[in-house]
Amino acid sequence: MMDADTMVLPRLGDAAVEDPWGEDRPRRATARAATAAWRWRIAAWLLPAALTGALGVARITASAPSAGELATRRAITSPWPGIGAALTGDEVALGPYHLFLRGWAALFGAADLALRVPSLLAMIGAAALVGALAARIATPAAGLAAGAIFAVLPTSIRYAQEAQPYALAVFAAVLATWLLVPALDRPALRRLMPYAGAVLLLGLCQPVALLLLAGHGWIVLAFRRRVAVRWLAAVVLGLLPAAALLAAGLRDGGHLASGVRPGAAVLAATPGDLFGVAVLGGVLAGLALFSLPLRYAAAICTAWALVPALGLLALAQAAPVWSAANLLFTVPAWAVLGGVALSRARVAGAVAVLALVALLAVADQLPW
Rank of each mutant, 00 (worst) to 15 (best):
360 L>C: 08
188 A>S: 14
184 L>G: 03
230 R>L: 08
86 A>D: 00
261 R>N: 11
104 W>K: 05
268 A>G: 01
329 F>T: 04
255 H>W: 03
162 E>P: 01
162 E>A: 03
173 A>T: 05
101 L>E: 10
83 I>E: 00
190 R>G: 09
88 T>S: 09
168 L>G: 10
281 G>C: 01
266 V>C: 01
172 A>T: 01
352 A>C: 10
309 A>H: 07
22 G>Q: 02
5 D>L: 11
293 P>D: 11
174 V>E: 02
280 L>H: 01
338 G>P: 08
85 A>D: 08
36 A>G: 10
204 L>N: 09
340 V>D: 10
222 A>G: 12
81 P>S: 00
347 V>H: 12
100 F>R: 08
14 D>C: 02
91 E>H: 12
186 R>D: 15
54 A>L: 15
292 L>N: 07
154 P>F: 05
22 G>E: 02
155 T>E: 12
279 V>D: 00
302 T>H: 12
221 L>H: 02
224 R>E: 03
206 Q>H: 15
236 V>I: 15
238 G>M: 03
247 A>W: 10
216 H>T: 05
114 A>T: 04
303 A>C: 10
61 T>H: 03
301 C>S: 13
66 S>A: 12
147 G>K: 09
99 L>Q: 04
263 G>D: 12
34 A>K: 13
199 V>A: 13
367 P>M: 10
218 W>I: 11
16 A>W: 09
155 T>M: 13
67 A>G: 15
340 V>W: 07
212 L>N: 05
62 A>Y: 06
264 A>M: 12
67 A>Y: 14
125 G>H: 11
157 I>Q: 14
65 P>H: 06
176 A>K: 11
274 L>P: 03
96 P>C: 02
166 Y>T: 07
242 A>Q: 04
311 G>C: 12
287 L>C: 07
248 A>L: 09
109 G>E: 01
145 A>E: 10
117 V>Y: 07
334 W>H: 11
357 V>C: 03
318 A>M: 00
332 P>S: 04
166 Y>A: 08
49 A>Q: 07
275 F>G: 03
297 A>N: 11
339 G>L: 12
333 A>R: 09
